[in-house]
Simulated assay, not measured.
Amino acid sequence: MEMYKLDMETPVGVIEIVGTEKVIQSILFVEREVAQLPEGNVPDVLRQCKEELDAYFRGERMTFTFPIEQVGTPFQREVWDALQTIPFAETTSYRELSERVKRPAAVRAVGATNGRNKLSIVIPCHRVIGSNGKLTGYAGGLWRKEWLLHHEKQVAHQTQ
Rank of each mutant, 00 (worst) to 15 (best):
R58Q: 14
V128G: 01
Q84H: 05
C49R: 08
E2N: 15
R58S: 08
H126F: 13
Q154T: 08
E21W: 08
G133F: 10
M1R: 13
Y4T: 07
G13Y: 05
V107E: 13
T20P: 02
L46C: 00
V155P: 04
R108V: 10
I27H: 05
M3C: 08
G137F: 09
N132K: 15
N117E: 07
A109I: 08
Q48V: 14
V128K: 02
F66W: 10
L135M: 07
L119P: 02
W80R: 00
Q48H: 13
Y138E: 03
R58G: 00
N117Q: 10
A82N: 03
D7H: 15
R127Y: 03
M62T: 15
P67Y: 09
L142W: 06
A109V: 08
K50Y: 03
E96M: 11
N117T: 11
L28Q: 15
V155I: 11
K50R: 15
V34M: 07
E96D: 15
T159P: 00
A89N: 08
E31P: 00
E9N: 12
R32E: 14
D44A: 13
R144Q: 04
L142F: 04
P43L: 10
I129A: 01
R61E: 09
T85I: 02
G133D: 10
T85E: 11
F64Q: 04
A82D: 01
M8Q: 14
M1L: 09
V110T: 08
K134Q: 14
I123P: 00
Y94P: 01
K118G: 07
K102R: 15
R100W: 05
G40R: 15
S26N: 12
T91Q: 11
E96W: 05
E78T: 09
A82G: 03
G19L: 03
K134A: 06
F57E: 05
I123T: 14
Q76M: 12
R144C: 00
E16C: 14
E21C: 01
E39I: 13
Q48N: 12
F88L: 05
Q154V: 09
V30I: 15
P74D: 12
T91A: 06
R32W: 14
I68S: 02
N132D: 15
L6R: 12
C49P: 09
G111I: 05
H157I: 00
E2V: 10
P11H: 10
I24C: 09
T85V: 06
M3Y: 15
F57D: 03
H150L: 06
E39M: 13
E51D: 14
K118Q: 12
L37D: 06
E39G: 09
A139C: 06
E99P: 01
M62L: 07
T65G: 07
R47T: 10
L28V: 13
A156Y: 11
W143I: 02
